[in-house]
Protein backbone atom coordinates (compact mmCIF):
# COMPACT_ATOMS: atom_id res chain seq x y z
CA UNK A 1 0.00 0.00 0.00
CA UNK A 2 1.36 3.45 -0.88
CA UNK A 3 0.58 6.76 0.86
CA UNK A 4 -2.10 7.75 -1.67
CA UNK A 5 -4.04 4.53 -1.06
CA UNK A 6 -3.55 4.88 2.70
CA UNK A 7 -4.96 8.40 2.75
CA UNK A 8 -8.18 7.25 1.12
CA UNK A 9 -8.66 4.78 3.98
CA UNK A 10 -7.50 6.95 6.88
CA UNK A 11 -10.80 8.87 7.39
CA UNK A 12 -12.67 5.56 7.62
CA UNK A 13 -10.13 4.18 10.09
CA UNK A 14 -10.51 7.37 12.15
CA UNK A 15 -14.29 6.96 12.12
CA UNK A 16 -13.97 3.31 13.19
CA UNK A 17 -15.75 1.80 10.21
CA UNK A 18 -12.92 0.44 8.08
CA UNK A 19 -13.36 -3.29 7.32
CA UNK A 20 -10.84 -5.54 9.13
CA UNK A 21 -8.94 -6.61 6.02
CA UNK A 22 -8.29 -3.05 4.87
CA UNK A 23 -7.60 -2.02 8.46
CA UNK A 24 -4.81 -4.62 8.68
CA UNK A 25 -3.25 -3.45 5.40
CA UNK A 26 -3.43 0.16 6.58
CA UNK A 27 -1.86 -0.71 9.93
CA UNK A 28 1.05 -2.36 8.14
CA UNK A 29 1.60 0.81 6.10
CA UNK A 30 1.27 3.10 9.13
CA UNK A 31 3.92 1.15 11.01
CA UNK A 32 6.52 2.42 8.58
CA UNK A 33 5.10 5.81 7.59
CA UNK A 34 5.26 8.71 10.12
CA UNK A 35 3.57 11.09 7.65
CA UNK A 36 0.47 8.88 7.38
CA UNK A 37 0.44 8.37 11.14
CA UNK A 38 0.27 12.15 11.50
CA UNK A 39 -2.51 12.18 8.91
CA UNK A 40 -4.43 9.62 10.98
CA UNK A 41 -4.00 11.66 14.15
CA UNK A 42 -5.37 14.71 12.31
CA UNK A 43 -8.30 12.66 10.98
CA UNK A 44 -9.14 11.43 14.50
CA UNK A 45 -9.32 15.04 15.73
CA UNK A 46 -11.46 15.96 12.75
CA UNK A 47 -13.91 13.13 13.42
CA UNK A 48 -14.16 14.17 17.07
CA UNK A 49 -14.79 17.84 16.23
CA UNK A 50 -17.36 17.08 13.53
CA UNK A 51 -19.17 14.51 15.67
CA UNK A 52 -19.43 17.14 18.37
CA UNK A 53 -20.68 19.75 15.90
CA UNK A 54 -23.32 17.43 14.43
CA UNK A 55 -24.40 16.53 17.97
CA UNK A 56 -25.00 20.22 18.72
CA UNK A 57 -27.31 20.70 15.75
CA UNK A 58 -30.94 21.45 16.64
CA UNK A 59 -33.80 18.96 16.66
CA UNK A 60 -37.04 19.18 14.67
CA UNK A 61 -39.85 21.09 16.38
CA UNK A 62 -42.60 19.13 18.08
CA UNK A 63 -45.10 20.24 15.43
CA UNK A 64 -43.40 17.98 12.89
CA UNK A 65 -44.71 14.85 14.58
CA UNK A 66 -48.27 16.21 14.59
CA UNK A 67 -48.04 17.08 10.89
CA UNK A 68 -46.48 13.70 10.08
CA UNK A 69 -49.19 11.78 11.91
CA UNK A 70 -51.94 13.83 10.27
CA UNK A 71 -50.42 13.12 6.83
CA UNK A 72 -50.08 9.41 7.66
CA UNK A 73 -53.70 9.20 8.75
CA UNK A 74 -54.80 11.02 5.61
CA UNK A 75 -57.46 13.66 5.09
CA UNK A 76 -60.64 12.41 6.72
CA UNK A 77 -63.71 12.39 4.47
CA UNK A 78 -66.04 11.04 7.11
CA UNK A 79 -66.38 8.49 9.87
CA UNK A 80 -69.03 6.57 11.74
CA UNK A 81 -68.51 5.98 15.47
CA UNK A 82 -70.61 3.68 17.60
CA UNK A 83 -70.24 2.72 21.27
CA UNK A 84 -68.59 4.68 24.07
CA UNK A 85 -65.16 5.72 25.34
CA UNK A 86 -64.76 2.31 27.01
CA UNK A 87 -65.68 0.23 23.99
CA UNK A 88 -66.52 1.41 20.54
CA UNK A 89 -66.15 0.87 16.83
CA UNK A 90 -65.08 3.46 14.29
CA UNK A 91 -65.33 3.16 10.52
CA UNK A 92 -63.68 5.94 8.52
CA UNK A 93 -63.06 7.01 4.94
CA UNK A 94 -60.07 9.21 4.10
CA UNK A 95 -57.79 10.39 1.33
CA UNK A 96 -54.22 9.19 1.73
CA UNK A 97 -51.44 9.05 -0.84
CA UNK A 98 -53.83 9.29 -3.79
CA UNK A 99 -56.04 6.49 -2.43
CA UNK A 100 -59.29 6.41 -0.51
CA UNK A 101 -58.94 3.70 2.11
CA UNK A 102 -61.82 2.49 4.29
CA UNK A 103 -60.56 1.72 7.80
CA UNK A 104 -62.14 0.10 10.82
CA UNK A 105 -60.87 0.51 14.37
CA UNK A 106 -61.87 -0.90 17.73
CA UNK A 107 -61.75 1.73 20.47
CA UNK A 108 -60.86 0.30 23.82
CA UNK A 109 -60.50 2.58 26.86
CA UNK A 110 -59.50 5.44 24.56
CA UNK A 111 -56.94 3.37 22.61
CA UNK A 112 -57.40 2.66 18.91
CA UNK A 113 -56.84 -0.90 17.70
CA UNK A 114 -56.80 -1.29 13.89
CA UNK A 115 -59.26 -3.93 12.68
CA UNK A 116 -59.12 -3.67 8.91
CA UNK A 117 -58.13 -1.41 6.06
CA UNK A 118 -59.50 -1.70 2.55
CA UNK A 119 -57.56 0.25 -0.07
CA UNK A 120 -59.79 2.34 -2.30
CA UNK A 121 -58.97 3.33 -5.86
CA UNK A 122 -56.89 6.28 -6.93
CA UNK A 123 -58.42 9.70 -6.90
Amino acid sequence: MNCQDARKLIPWQAAGSLPDEEGAALAAHLAGCPACRAELAQAVRLVRDLREAFGLMPEPTTEVWARTLARARGIPLGSLDVGSFLLGLSIGLSVRGGKVPLTGELKLFGHRVPLFEIEGGAR
Binding site: A15, S17, D49, L50, E52, F54
Partner: peptide, 29 residues
Protein backbone atom coordinates in the same frame (compact mmCIF):
# COMPACT_ATOMS: atom_id res chain seq x y z
CA UNK B 1 -18.27 25.30 16.59
CA UNK B 2 -18.35 28.29 14.25
CA UNK B 3 -15.17 27.16 12.53
CA UNK B 4 -16.55 23.64 12.04
CA UNK B 5 -19.86 25.06 10.78
CA UNK B 6 -18.06 27.29 8.34
CA UNK B 7 -15.85 24.44 7.11
CA UNK B 8 -18.87 22.18 6.57
CA UNK B 9 -20.74 24.87 4.65
CA UNK B 10 -17.85 25.22 2.23
CA UNK B 11 -18.15 21.60 1.16
CA UNK B 12 -20.43 20.71 -1.74
CA UNK B 13 -23.61 18.87 -0.57
CA UNK B 14 -22.42 15.51 -1.93
CA UNK B 15 -19.31 15.68 0.27
CA UNK B 16 -21.24 17.00 3.27
CA UNK B 17 -23.61 14.03 3.27
CA UNK B 18 -20.74 11.52 3.11
CA UNK B 19 -19.08 13.26 6.07
CA UNK B 20 -22.37 13.21 8.01
CA UNK B 21 -23.01 9.52 7.41
CA UNK B 22 -19.40 8.50 8.10
CA UNK B 23 -18.60 10.67 11.10
CA UNK B 24 -21.98 11.17 12.81
CA UNK B 25 -23.86 8.00 11.90
CA UNK B 26 -20.68 5.88 11.89
CA UNK B 27 -21.61 4.15 8.64
CA UNK B 28 -19.07 2.29 6.51
CA UNK B 29 -18.37 3.36 2.94
Amino acid sequence: VERVRSALERLPPEQREVVFFAFYEGLSY
